[in-house]
């Protein structure tokens, strides 16, 4: 009995360790996720596809997390510029381009199966229960990010500010509904 009670946790630990290293491997190659996924599935016979699938989704989840964090950081940097009184347009332009770029990538960030059932995430299951509404909100975000980035090409601070406010509205619209409170 005693032996069994020791082996079970030991097994769990080794499983966790496996999952962990798998995930971090995936993270390392996150810059090229779709390629990795393609070669991964092509190289493996169909029978192990299930085993490789969770690792792939985890990588997407990780990319999503990192991407959202970068968007958040860029947003904060822009807000600080505006609130400071003498905004540095070059900084704003760079951050705006980053957000616009990531917003396009975000289309690939929410495949089915990357909700809380897979791991720690702020993505609510509601996303996959209301795919049309979610897609519409994501689209609004992408349009607003593009418009904001385009506005930073000019020198009209008020116009840029107004597009920035629009962009913030699209973040909030989606987060209020589809993001749970996640602590990290």
């Amino acid at each position: 009995m005693r032996f069994a009670s020791i082996t079970v946790p030991a097994l769990c630990v080794s499983l966790v360790a496996c999952g962990g290293s798998g995930a971090s491997q995936a993270n390392n190659s996150q810059a090229n996720i779709s390629d990795a996924a393609r070669t991964g599935t092509a190289a493996q016979p169909a029978t192990v596809q299930n085993a490789s699938a969770p690792v792939d989704l985890r990588a997407v989840m990780h990319e999503r997390h990192e991407g959202m964090e970068t968007i958040g950081k860029s947003n904060k940097a822009i807000k600080r510029e505006f609130d400071g009184g003498s905004p540095d347009l070059a900084t704003i332009r760079g951050s705006a381009a980053k957000i616009a770029d990531l917003s396009q990538k975000a289309s690939l960030w929410f495949p089915a199966g990357t909700g809380p059932e897979l791991g720690k995430t702020g993505a609510k299951p509601d996303i996959w229960q209301n795919p049309q509404d979610f897609a519409a909100k994501l689209h609004n975000f992408q349009v607003a990010a593009k418009a904001f980035s385009a506005a930073t090409g000019g020198n009209d601070v008020n116009a840029i500010k107004s597009k920035f406010a629009d962009l913030g509205g699209t973040c909030k619209a989606c987060h209020d509904k589809y993001r749970s409170e996640m602590h990290h």
């Binding site: 904060k76 600080r80 913030g168 973040c171 909030k172 987060h175």
Partner: peptide, 29 residues
Amino acid sequence: SQDEDGLYAGPLYRLVGTDASDSARDIHE
């Protein structure tokens, strides 16, 4: 403090850096 998304912030958030504002929010919670 500042919020997670960079949409809202307390009136004195610019007195500290962005990382401090994030930490302040976590501790505030």
